[in-house]
Amino acid sequence: MNIAVCICEVPDPVLPVTVTDGTPDLSRVSRIMNPYDEYAVEEAVRLKERFPGSPVTAFTVTSSGSGREALLKALAMGADRAVEVLSASLADSFQIASMLSAAIRTTFPDALPQLVCCGRESSDYRSAAVPAMLAGMLGMAYAGAVTAFRASDGVLELERETEGGVECLEACYPLVFSAEKGLNTPRKTGIRQVMEARRKPLETLHVAPPPGPLVRFCSAEPVTRKRVCRFAASPEELAGLLLRAVQGDAGEGG
Protein backbone atom coordinates (compact mmCIF):
# COMPACT_ATOMS: atom_id res chain seq x y z
CA MET A 1 0.00 0.00 0.00
CA ASN A 2 1.15 3.51 -0.76
CA ILE A 3 1.09 6.28 1.82
CA ALA A 4 1.16 9.96 0.89
CA VAL A 5 1.94 12.82 3.28
CA CYS A 6 1.12 16.42 2.46
CA ILE A 7 3.30 19.00 4.14
CA CYS A 8 4.16 22.68 3.89
CA GLU A 9 6.53 25.28 5.24
CA VAL A 10 5.46 28.14 7.49
CA PRO A 11 7.30 31.16 8.86
CA ASP A 12 9.14 30.36 12.09
CA PRO A 13 6.94 32.08 14.66
CA VAL A 14 9.81 33.55 16.69
CA LEU A 15 9.53 36.87 14.85
CA PRO A 16 6.33 38.69 13.95
CA VAL A 17 5.63 38.95 10.22
CA THR A 18 5.43 42.53 8.94
CA VAL A 19 3.42 44.07 6.11
CA THR A 20 4.82 45.71 2.99
CA ASP A 21 2.49 47.30 0.41
CA GLY A 22 -0.60 45.59 1.76
CA THR A 23 0.84 42.08 1.70
CA PRO A 24 2.62 40.04 4.38
CA ASP A 25 6.38 40.47 3.96
CA LEU A 26 7.99 37.05 4.21
CA SER A 27 11.39 38.05 2.82
CA ARG A 28 13.11 38.14 6.20
CA VAL A 29 11.49 35.22 7.98
CA SER A 30 13.08 31.83 8.30
CA ARG A 31 10.89 28.89 7.48
CA ILE A 32 10.18 25.65 9.28
CA MET A 33 8.08 22.59 8.58
CA ASN A 34 4.52 23.28 9.74
CA PRO A 35 4.42 21.81 13.29
CA TYR A 36 1.28 19.72 12.63
CA ASP A 37 2.89 18.19 9.54
CA GLU A 38 5.59 16.67 11.71
CA TYR A 39 2.91 14.54 13.39
CA ALA A 40 1.60 13.51 9.96
CA VAL A 41 5.06 12.47 8.71
CA GLU A 42 5.83 10.64 11.94
CA GLU A 43 2.59 8.64 11.78
CA ALA A 44 3.16 7.73 8.13
CA VAL A 45 6.70 6.54 8.85
CA ARG A 46 5.54 4.52 11.87
CA LEU A 47 2.94 2.76 9.70
CA LYS A 48 5.56 1.99 7.08
CA GLU A 49 7.79 0.50 9.76
CA ARG A 50 4.93 -1.69 11.02
CA PHE A 51 3.68 -2.73 7.58
CA PRO A 52 6.66 -3.30 5.29
CA GLY A 53 5.97 -2.58 1.64
CA SER A 54 4.16 0.70 2.38
CA PRO A 55 6.40 3.38 0.90
CA VAL A 56 5.83 6.96 2.01
CA THR A 57 5.78 9.83 -0.52
CA ALA A 58 5.86 13.40 0.77
CA PHE A 59 4.19 16.17 -1.27
CA THR A 60 4.37 19.91 -0.99
CA VAL A 61 2.92 22.55 -3.31
CA THR A 62 4.62 25.89 -3.53
CA SER A 63 4.52 28.96 -5.68
CA SER A 64 7.71 30.44 -4.26
CA GLY A 65 9.96 27.39 -4.44
CA SER A 66 10.10 27.25 -0.64
CA GLY A 67 9.30 23.78 0.47
CA ARG A 68 12.45 21.84 -0.22
CA GLU A 69 13.67 22.09 3.36
CA ALA A 70 10.45 20.58 4.63
CA LEU A 71 10.65 17.80 2.04
CA LEU A 72 14.26 17.05 3.04
CA LYS A 73 13.18 16.92 6.66
CA ALA A 74 10.39 14.48 5.78
CA LEU A 75 12.92 12.32 3.93
CA ALA A 76 15.26 12.46 6.91
CA MET A 77 12.41 11.37 9.18
CA GLY A 78 11.94 8.31 6.98
CA ALA A 79 9.83 9.17 3.93
CA ASP A 80 11.02 7.33 0.80
CA ARG A 81 10.53 9.94 -1.83
CA ALA A 82 9.49 13.55 -2.12
CA VAL A 83 7.55 15.50 -4.74
CA GLU A 84 7.74 19.26 -5.01
CA VAL A 85 4.75 20.61 -6.92
CA LEU A 86 5.30 23.98 -8.53
CA SER A 87 2.47 26.39 -9.22
CA ALA A 88 2.33 29.89 -10.63
CA SER A 89 0.01 31.22 -7.97
CA LEU A 90 -1.61 29.82 -4.90
CA ALA A 91 -4.21 32.00 -3.28
CA ASP A 92 -6.41 29.87 -1.05
CA SER A 93 -6.99 26.43 0.47
CA PHE A 94 -9.09 25.39 -2.50
CA GLN A 95 -6.24 26.00 -4.93
CA ILE A 96 -3.71 24.23 -2.74
CA ALA A 97 -5.99 21.21 -2.34
CA SER A 98 -6.61 21.16 -6.12
CA MET A 99 -2.88 21.12 -6.80
CA LEU A 100 -2.23 18.39 -4.25
CA SER A 101 -5.04 16.30 -5.67
CA ALA A 102 -3.66 16.68 -9.22
CA ALA A 103 -0.12 15.88 -8.05
CA ILE A 104 -1.21 12.75 -6.19
CA ARG A 105 -3.22 11.56 -9.19
CA THR A 106 -0.26 12.19 -11.52
CA THR A 107 2.21 10.43 -9.24
CA PHE A 108 -0.08 7.43 -8.70
CA PRO A 109 -1.82 7.03 -12.09
CA ASP A 110 -2.95 3.43 -11.56
CA ALA A 111 -4.17 3.34 -7.97
CA LEU A 112 -4.41 6.16 -5.46
CA PRO A 113 -2.59 5.79 -2.12
CA GLN A 114 -4.61 3.98 0.52
CA LEU A 115 -3.74 6.59 3.10
CA VAL A 116 -3.07 10.33 2.87
CA CYS A 117 -1.74 12.00 6.03
CA CYS A 118 -1.92 15.78 6.54
CA GLY A 119 -1.36 18.17 9.43
CA ARG A 120 -4.46 19.59 11.14
CA GLU A 121 -3.79 23.08 9.85
CA SER A 122 -0.91 25.28 8.77
CA SER A 123 0.18 27.59 11.55
CA ASP A 124 0.29 30.71 9.35
CA TYR A 125 -3.30 30.95 8.05
CA ARG A 126 -4.88 28.29 10.25
CA SER A 127 -7.75 27.53 7.91
CA ALA A 128 -7.65 23.76 8.54
CA ALA A 129 -9.33 23.32 5.17
CA VAL A 130 -6.87 21.63 2.78
CA PRO A 131 -7.12 18.05 4.18
CA ALA A 132 -10.93 17.92 4.01
CA MET A 133 -11.01 19.49 0.55
CA LEU A 134 -8.32 17.11 -0.67
CA ALA A 135 -10.31 14.12 0.59
CA GLY A 136 -13.36 15.31 -1.32
CA MET A 137 -11.34 15.86 -4.49
CA LEU A 138 -9.73 12.42 -4.27
CA GLY A 139 -13.07 10.81 -3.44
CA MET A 140 -11.66 9.38 -0.24
CA ALA A 141 -13.11 9.15 3.28
CA TYR A 142 -11.93 11.78 5.73
CA ALA A 143 -11.26 12.15 9.44
CA GLY A 144 -10.09 15.50 10.79
CA ALA A 145 -7.84 16.32 13.79
CA VAL A 146 -6.97 12.79 14.84
CA THR A 147 -5.19 12.21 18.18
CA ALA A 148 -4.86 8.39 17.97
CA PHE A 149 -4.51 6.11 14.95
CA ARG A 150 -4.59 2.31 15.35
CA ALA A 151 -4.45 0.06 12.29
CA SER A 152 -5.13 -3.68 12.24
CA ASP A 153 -6.31 -5.86 9.34
CA GLY A 154 -7.41 -2.89 7.32
CA VAL A 155 -9.70 -1.68 10.12
CA LEU A 156 -8.75 1.68 11.56
CA GLU A 157 -9.58 2.95 15.01
CA LEU A 158 -9.21 6.67 15.40
CA GLU A 159 -9.66 9.06 18.27
CA ARG A 160 -10.12 12.78 18.38
CA GLU A 161 -11.02 15.50 20.82
CA THR A 162 -14.46 16.92 20.99
CA GLU A 163 -15.94 19.43 23.44
CA GLY A 164 -15.26 17.92 26.85
CA GLY A 165 -14.46 14.43 25.61
CA VAL A 166 -12.89 11.95 23.23
CA GLU A 167 -14.65 10.63 20.15
CA CYS A 168 -13.78 7.12 18.86
CA LEU A 169 -14.15 6.47 15.15
CA GLU A 170 -13.97 3.34 13.06
CA ALA A 171 -12.79 3.77 9.49
CA CYS A 172 -11.35 1.82 6.60
CA TYR A 173 -8.96 2.56 3.75
CA PRO A 174 -8.74 4.56 1.59
CA LEU A 175 -8.65 7.47 4.00
CA VAL A 176 -7.37 11.03 4.30
CA PHE A 177 -6.77 12.13 7.88
CA SER A 178 -5.31 15.20 9.52
CA ALA A 179 -2.98 14.95 12.51
CA GLU A 180 -3.61 16.81 15.75
CA LYS A 181 -1.03 17.44 18.43
CA GLY A 182 -0.87 14.46 20.78
CA LEU A 183 -1.00 11.87 17.97
CA ASN A 184 2.67 10.99 18.48
CA THR A 185 6.05 12.47 19.33
CA PRO A 186 7.90 13.24 16.10
CA ARG A 187 11.41 11.76 15.97
CA LYS A 188 14.51 13.90 15.98
CA THR A 189 16.82 13.49 13.03
CA GLY A 190 20.61 13.38 13.17
CA ILE A 191 23.42 13.98 10.68
CA ARG A 192 23.16 10.42 9.37
CA GLN A 193 19.46 10.72 8.50
CA VAL A 194 20.03 14.12 6.91
CA MET A 195 22.82 12.68 4.74
CA GLU A 196 20.63 9.74 3.75
CA ALA A 197 17.80 12.09 2.86
CA ARG A 198 20.00 13.81 0.28
CA ARG A 199 20.34 10.50 -1.57
CA LYS A 200 16.59 9.85 -1.71
CA PRO A 201 14.58 10.87 -4.79
CA LEU A 202 13.18 14.42 -4.78
CA GLU A 203 11.23 15.21 -7.93
CA THR A 204 9.78 18.46 -9.19
CA LEU A 205 6.36 18.17 -10.75
CA HIS A 206 4.52 20.68 -12.88
CA VAL A 207 0.76 20.22 -13.02
CA ALA A 208 -1.91 22.27 -14.79
CA PRO A 209 -2.74 25.50 -12.97
CA PRO A 210 -5.65 25.21 -10.52
CA PRO A 211 -9.07 26.81 -11.09
CA GLY A 212 -9.47 30.34 -9.69
CA PRO A 213 -9.50 30.83 -5.93
CA LEU A 214 -12.76 30.80 -3.97
CA VAL A 215 -11.44 33.26 -1.40
CA ARG A 216 -9.22 36.22 -2.18
CA PHE A 217 -6.99 37.63 0.54
CA CYS A 218 -6.15 41.32 0.32
CA SER A 219 -5.39 44.51 2.24
CA ALA A 220 -3.16 43.04 4.92
CA GLU A 221 -2.54 45.42 7.82
CA PRO A 222 -0.28 45.05 10.82
CA VAL A 223 -2.05 44.65 14.14
CA THR A 224 -0.97 46.61 17.15
CA ARG A 225 -1.86 44.65 20.21
CA LYS A 226 -0.39 47.09 22.65
CA ARG A 227 -2.78 48.09 25.42
CA VAL A 228 -2.22 50.34 28.39
CA CYS A 229 -2.21 48.18 31.48
CA ARG A 230 -3.75 49.54 34.63
CA PHE A 231 -1.86 47.97 37.54
CA ALA A 232 -3.68 47.06 40.72
CA ALA A 233 -1.74 47.51 43.95
CA SER A 234 -3.51 44.67 45.76
CA PRO A 235 -5.66 41.61 45.04
CA GLU A 236 -8.57 43.55 46.55
CA GLU A 237 -8.19 46.32 43.98
CA LEU A 238 -7.85 43.73 41.21
CA ALA A 239 -11.07 42.09 42.41
CA GLY A 240 -12.83 45.43 41.97
CA LEU A 241 -11.50 45.79 38.41
CA LEU A 242 -12.56 42.23 37.59
CA LEU A 243 -16.06 42.79 38.89
CA ARG A 244 -16.37 45.85 36.73
CA ALA A 245 -15.28 43.86 33.68
CA VAL A 246 -17.68 41.00 34.46
CA GLN A 247 -20.69 43.12 35.35
CA GLY A 248 -20.17 45.44 32.41
CA ASP A 249 -21.25 42.51 30.24
CA ALA A 250 -24.99 42.59 30.00
CA GLY A 251 -25.14 39.80 27.48
CA GLU A 252 -23.20 37.06 29.19
CA GLY A 253 -25.21 34.61 31.22
CA GLY A 254 -23.30 32.46 33.72
Binding site: P16, V17, D124, Y125, C218
Partner: peptide, 16 residues
Protein backbone atom coordinates in the same frame (compact mmCIF):
# COMPACT_ATOMS: atom_id res chain seq x y z
CA UNK B 1 -9.18 37.63 10.00
CA UNK B 2 -5.88 37.45 11.86
CA UNK B 3 -3.04 35.52 10.24
CA UNK B 4 0.63 34.93 11.10
CA UNK B 5 0.18 34.58 14.86
CA UNK B 6 -2.33 37.41 14.91
CA UNK B 7 0.27 39.99 13.92
CA UNK B 8 -1.56 40.74 10.65
CA UNK B 9 -5.20 41.31 9.80
CA UNK B 10 -6.20 40.39 6.26
CA UNK B 11 -9.43 40.94 4.34
CA UNK B 12 -11.01 37.83 2.79
CA UNK B 13 -13.26 38.31 -0.20
CA UNK B 14 -15.54 35.41 -1.16
CA UNK B 15 -15.60 34.66 -4.89
CA UNK B 16 -18.20 31.88 -4.98
Amino acid sequence: RPIHCGSILVACVPEA
